[in-house]
Design a protein around this nucleic acid. Structure first.
Length: 575
RNA sequence: GGGCCCGUAGCCUAGCCUGGAUAGGGCGACAGCCUCCUAAGCUGUAGACCGCGGGUUCGAAUCCCGCCGGGUCCGCCA
């Protein structure tokens, strides 16, 4: 690893290994980050204490005394059972700043891993516009895509397109049998919005009218039997919806690399082979001609532990096709990640067990998120009780516009304000979803979703714009970097923070936790603002200090930009 | 009824996996800071029986058990 922070950590670990082996202490070395002011890395001696039966404090002191200083270790200290390491800031500053300025947009990225990752996300039924209830899905998914790319993986994002389910069949029936005048009018002229009324109306009719329900079931059945005409008819119905969905995603900087239709696995018969192989397992049973696996012995509990994978007419079910999809994916990638709503937990578990039984090469790792609900309850496209993603986007941009106007109307053109509002509004939306861990329930409130203050994206974007503004005004000044002069606490704290970016990307990718990035960026912006307060750049009389600070500002700009890019958020040059 | 997830100040949230140094932030409240690089900023004050009750441990927000509240699932649906 070529990053200074890695080298530094490595040096500390090897110094520790050295001492521990001389003391004949045998334990794993895990470094922690101590609280502010107590050093840069800490080695806790508690587990060691229980092994060698001595107080942790004494062990820490003994170890600290024996640590040899080197280019990275400036000072070693102990406190309450911890060995605290103070790293040589001069060395870190020098190497970090140079590297950031040299690598620019590549700074933070980890070495190529030669591994392929497929991240499946969004995969919404194409029966209407994306709504906020599931809006976490594309945002979490796309952020993971970006994080894994930065972590050195080759990544493909996939949208599993349910083109044979009931939802899409209902939509198809509606499009084919209803007139525009029969359906509720939508206030947005976008293909997915135009279509959703047909779905809602068809749903309503189906519930009251058995004949219609039968016709819809007929569509599903023909489709599952692999009837090309029916599959194509369905495709005609959902295609415009999908176009609308893509457009919404694009608006929030999300691009799906590949759409994989479910029908593919019926057409190519791979799902039949799944059925055949599952039937051969010892867990397979039959009831009235339908086949299921009994998953009682796999830790599945509840009223029903049977996992049906065929109907009595021999057709397959959603989960069966999902198994075929996963086998197909496993052939092409080393790591599979699925971003799913928590309602898919059981299905996901069932698919995983089946994949194990079928000896799949790679098992998927699922990231589950809790729904965003409304104060009055769960969102539902069918009931029309929804906030669409498009509305949230518009509202977010509109509110951002009012904020820009309030502050900059006198100085900026209308066009510029609109552009900034777009960048801030969309950034806000993505940031506010990512900063909360996926498993936490969210009750949607406009004020929270579109919060513009504190730990929110404008704080970070503003820091970036501030850096750009200083750099623009100082563009004719000298560029010399003399890192020895950067010795103010605020400068040192900021640089140490910049040095951490690679570690943060590593941690976020290993743990699949995108919120680690938002936290990091917030702290980075915060330290930059403290630097801004304490260390004037342009007014600085000492030219060497001034030019060195300019370099630090530039390095901060790069880190903020690279970090925002991991979140799919644009870094504005002014706001 | 059973499984899984969540429960941290008035509100939102980090830390929980891998137990240890004063439980970090933010919003809101209160008090300050623009003759000085964008105040979408900075500084300070108040506010937490970490849902409740047991247990394990030298030590528990963190691990285990029970309970309570919310979410979600338990279809030959997707």
């Amino acid at each position: 690893m070529d990053y200074p922070i890695y080298e530094c950590r490595k040096e500390i670990i090897s110094a520790l290994e050295n001492v521990l082996s001389r003391l004949k202490y045998d334990c794993k070395i895990k470094l922690e980050i101590p609280p502010e002011g107590m050093g840069d890395f800490a080695f806790p001696c508690f587990s060691l204490a229980s092994i060698v039966k001595k107080p942790p404090n004494g062990i820490a002191k003994k170890i600290a005394d024996m640590i040899e200083k080197n280019v990275w270790i400036d000072k070693v200290d102990t406190q309450g059972g911890y060995v605290n390491f103070f790293i040589d800031t001069k060395h870190l500053i020098n190497s970090t700043l140079k590297l950031i300025l040299e690598k620019k947009e590549e700074y933070g990225k980890l070495h190529k891993k030669n591994k392929k990752v497929i991240i499946e996300h969004t995969s919404a039924n194409p029966n209407g516009p994306l709504h906020v209830g599931r809006a976490r899905n594309p945002i979490i998914g796309d952020t993971l895509v970006r994080i894994f790319r930065a972590a050195g993986y080759s990544v493909e994002s996939q949208y599993y397109l349910d083109d044979m389910g009931k939802q899409v069949a209902i939509l198809t029936w509606g499009i084919n049998n209803l007139d525009q005048n029969d359906v509720p009018k939508q206030d947005r002229n976008k293909p997915d919005h135009r279509a959703v009324g047909f779905y809602q109306k068809a749903n309503e009719l189906m519930e009251k009218n058995e004949k219609i329900a039968k016709e819809i079931n007929e569509i599903i059945k023909r489709c599952e039997q692999g009837d090309s005409k029916t599959i194509e008819m369905i495709q005609r119905a959902y295609s415009p919806v999908l176009m609308g969905i893509k457009e919404s995603l694009q608006h929030i900087n999300i691009k799906i690399d590949r759409f994989v239709p479910e029908s593919m696995f019926v057409r190519d018969k791979s799902v039949d082979s799944v059925v055949k192989k599952l039937r051969e397992t010892r867990y397979c049973h039959e009831q009235d001609g339908a086949f299921y696996l009994d998953l009682k012995t796999f830790g599945i509990q509840g009223r029903n532990t049977r996992f049906f994978f065929t109907r009595k007419d021999g057709t397959t079910l959603y989960a069966t096709r999902d198994i075929a999809y996963h086998l197909w994916k496993a052939k092409q990638a080393d790591i599979l990640i699925n971003v799913l709503g928590e309602d898919h937990k059981l299905e996901s578990k069932q698919v995983e067990i089946a994949l194990k039984l079928l000896n799949a090469k790679t098992l998927p790792k699922a990231i589950f998120y809790a729904f965003v609900s409304l104060p009055e309850g769960k969102m539902s496209t069918r009931k029309g009780r929804v906030i669409y993603l498009d509305d949230l986007i518009d509202e977010s941009i509109e509110r951002a516009y009012l904020e820009v106007k309030k502050r900059r109307e006198a100085e900026l053109s209308e066009k510029k304000m609109k552009k900034i509002a777009e960048i801030v509004g969309i950034g806000c939306l993505r940031y506010n979803i990512i900063k909360i861990q996926p498993e936490k329930d969210i009750i949607f409130k406009w004020e929270e979703a579109l919060n513009f203050e504190g730990n929110a994206v404008p704080f970070i974007q503003y820091a970036h714009a501030r850096a750009c503004s200083i750099l623009l005004k100082g563009k004719n000044m000298k560029k010399k970097l003399e890192s020895n002069v950067l010795n103010h606490t605020s400068e040192i704290q900021l640089i140490k923070q910049l040095a951490r970016l690679p570690l943060v990307i590593e941690e976020a990718s290993i743990s699949c936790k995108p919120h680690i990035i938002t936290t990091y960026l917030y702290e980075t912006a915060s330290r930059f603002n403290q630097f801004y307060r304490d260390c004037p750049v342009l007014p600085e009389k000492n030219k060497v200090l001034q030019s060195s600070r300019l370099n630090l500002v530039d390095a901060t700009r790069i880190v903020l930009k690279n970090g925002l890019d991991l979140l799919g958020i644009t870094a504005p040059e002014e706001m």
